[in-house]
């Protein structure tokens, strides 16, 4: 297991280098710079501009800037935001729990309903129910996140007035960030109604963010389940006299789950991309919104550092998925 992780880490290093280069190149390719953006429409004194650029180190050639970024990163220093002057790392840590909470809820929603939909479709293969569920999954998969978010807002928030439109909690509550996870913090605060408010704020964003993973998980579960249901050991389980439910949920699902877990892991990457859009739609104060805002402010250190941190996250999650894979599948566990 240990050598396995080491081997994976060896692959990770070139990946990281590639990501730093890409992040650096992309943000510098966008026209404009932080000083121009901050000044905006006002007249700009060329002397002031030069001084500001020099102070930020942006007057140096690009390759030197990249070198500083790289060496700083190797020392664990991601620099500080040009806009807020705060270290990128501490901003990330402050905002990350919001994204984490949203992602966990979205993945929970996607996994529970995706698995259920996939299992139902597989066991009722070829029926109207199967076609309906899979049709819905395909629709969900092809739904543009922005449009889907707005539809839900119009229906549930505007027409029905059931759910709030933006933020993590109603403004009337002042919750001390202890864990950064609003659901837990509101419970700890003991303020009446705060937890309910946090839940209501989470529902729509979680659905919007979870829809594509849900569709992917449902389709994967169905096909994996159909394959497993044809196996000899399913016939054995049925020959034991086990109920249909037990055969499906205990004997088939456990084996069908292996490819599904991989897919769930791969969805985490997609999830963070979706989080950028979802957080923007719902003004959710997380990493996605932070990155978008930083790009429009040309806050180079934040964009470069933020992308790197997000990439690290994705790589770590994929590694965890591989480990989890071994836990579910005894054959892999013993092979290592």
């Amino acid at each position: 297991m240990f050598t396995f992780i080491l081997r994976r880490l060896a692959v990770v290093i070139p990946t990281f280098l590639g990501i730093t280069l890409l992040a650096f190149a992309l943000i510098h390719m966008i026209p404009g710079d932080p000083v121009l953006i901050m000044v905006g429409e006002r007249k700009l004194d060329p002397e002031f501009y030069k001084a500001a650029m020099a102070r930020l180190g942006l007057d140096q050639p690009l390759y030197l800037q990249y070198w500083h970024y790289l060496t700083g990163m190797l020392h664990g220093d991601l620099g500080q935001s040009i806009v807020t002057q705060e270290p990128v790392m501490s901003e990330f840590l402050k905002l990350f729990p919001a994204t984490l909470e949203l992602s966990i809820c979205a993945m929970l929603f996607a996994t529970v309903f995706g698995l259920a939909a996939g299992i139902v479709a597989a066991t009722r293969r070829g029926t109207v129910l199967d076609h309906t569920v899979m049709g819905a999954a395909l629709t969900g998969y092809s739904m543009p996140i922005f449009w889907w978010g707005l539809i839900l807002i119009i229906f549930f928030s505007v027409n029905l007035g059931w759910t709030p439109v933006s933020g993590r909690i109603d403004l009337q509550y002042d919750i001390a960030p202890r864990t950064g996870l609003m659901l837990i913090d509101t419970l700890l605060s003991g303020e009446e109604g705060a937890f309910k408010s946090a839940v209501m704020h989470l529902i729509l964003p979680s659905i919007v963010l979870g829809t594509i993973p849900l569709a992917v998980i449902a389709r994967m579960t169905r096909s994996s389940m159909l394959e497993v249901l044809r196996e000899d050991y399913i016939r054995t389980a049925r020959a034991k006299g086990l109920s249909r439910t037990r055969v499906v949920l205990v004997h088939a699902l456990r084996n069908a789950l292996m490819p599904v877990v991989t897919v769930i892991g791969l969805q985490v990457g997609t999830l963070l991309a979706g989080a950028v859009l979802t957080e923007t739609i719902f003004s959710w104060p997380g990493i996605g919104k932070w990155l978008i805002d930083s790009i429009s402010r040309r806050d180079y250190p934040v964009v470069q550092g933020g992308i790197l941190l997000v990439a690290t996250l994705i790589i770590v999650v994929n590694l965890l998925v591989d480990v989890l894979y071994g836990v579910i599948n005894p054959r892999i566990r013993h092979a290592r």
Partner: peptide, 21 residues
Amino acid sequence: KIIGRDVAMIFQDALSSLNPA
């Protein structure tokens, strides 16, 4: 109630007839 208790069956390919998990 009867299948698996009073009537039981074994198959040709035993290896694939056992649940790998």
